[in-house]
């Protein structure tokens, strides 16, 4: 590994002026970021210190042309942490990249002091520094994007899970009340959740209630059919309830064959059928006193 002249200039500029640069840099960031309040000052200082330390180590040891080399790993790791924290806090990509870009002004100031009037040397050093920092800045944006994509994916999953409550109505009888539009992804999660619950609870009958489903297209109908078939393979029966007249029409028009699947107009009807099949019944007794 060769240490070039630029390395030395950059290194000694930061090395000798470390305390100043750090203070200015932090001040710079606070100015540019309104949301990043006083409460986070300690964290910010910490981040800046660590970055400066690793950045310094990297330019002392390292290759300024190839930032893939191992000396840069620690620097990238700091940026990844910073971008992750800011991404998860919901800060904007600019506010995330600011971490690196705001470092320029104090660094250039320090380089100017070092150059002491030598314009050519200053220009070279500034160019070198700006190239490095641009690449690092872009990296924070990359990490930021990945983090946000992850957040979105997680939220989507959470929403899917939230929307599929499987409830026990009686021993061995489950109900899955579906509400809202069923798309392919959601139907798949519904299917998996229902089958999993059937296994965990040992329930032999599951009622899929679609009263709250506005429309049923071919794909959804097929998904429902698959769910029922899969449940049967596991040893459980499904009853579909809450089929409104329009949906009954659609199913027939679409030519979807429901086969021997039990269907009921209402959840109550389906529950009655489920009780009959389980050898259970509801008996009228003296009403319990409510106090």
């Amino acid at each position: 590994m060769t240490t070039t002249q630029q390395n030395k200039t950059l290194y000694s500029a930061i090395e000798t002026d470390q305390a100043n640069i750090l203070t200015e840099w932090i001040a710079e960031q606070k100015k540019m970021m309104s949301q990043y309040g006083q409460a986070k000052e300690q964290e910010l200082t910490q981040q800046c210190q660590t970055f400066l330390q690793h950045f310094l180590a990297a330019i002392r040891e390292g290759n300024l042309d190839n930032m893939q080399s191992p000396e840069w790993r620690a620097t990238y790791a700091v940026l990844e942490d910073v971008a992750t924290i800011r991404g998860e806090m919901g800060l904007s990509p600019s506010e995330t990249a600011t971490f690196v870009f705001s470092f320029k002004r104090p660094l250039f100031a320090s380089l100017a002091r070092m150059a002491d009037g030598n314009a050519e040397a200053l220009a070279a050093a500034v160019w070198e520094a700006t190239t490095l920092l641009d690449r690092l800045g872009l990296y924070t944006t990359e990490v930021y994007t990945k983090i946000r994509e992850g957040v979105i994916a997680r939220q989507q999953e959470d929403m899917l899970e939230l929307s599929t409550p499987v409830v026990t109505l009686a021993p061995g009888i489950l109900a899955l009340p579906l509400i809202g539009t069923l798309d392919s992804a959601r139907t798949q999660v519904v299917m998996e959740t229902l089958l999993q619950t059937i296994m965990e609870t040992g329930s032999t009958i599951a009622i899929i209630d679609i009263t709250g489903v506005p429309t049923v297209d071919t794909l959804v109908a097929q998904h429902l059919l698959k769910t029922v078939t899969a449940a049967r393979l596991m040893g459980a029966d499904c009853i579909i309830s809450g089929i409104r007249p329009q949906i009954a029409q659609t199913i027939v028009h679409l030519g979807v064959e429901l086969g021997d699947i039990a269907t009921k107009a209402t959840l109550a009807g389906a529950f009655k059928l489920a009780l009959d099949r389980s050898g259970l019944s509801i008996v009228k007794t003296k009403p319990a006193l409510q106090i």
Partner: peptide, 17 residues
């Protein structure tokens, strides 16, 4: 007895009912 949910879903998708 005891077919796992993932196995059941896969079988149906495979076209084996």
């Amino acid at each position: 007895v005891g077919m796992q949910p993932a196995v059941a879903i896969t079988l149906v998708e495979l076209g084996l009912t």
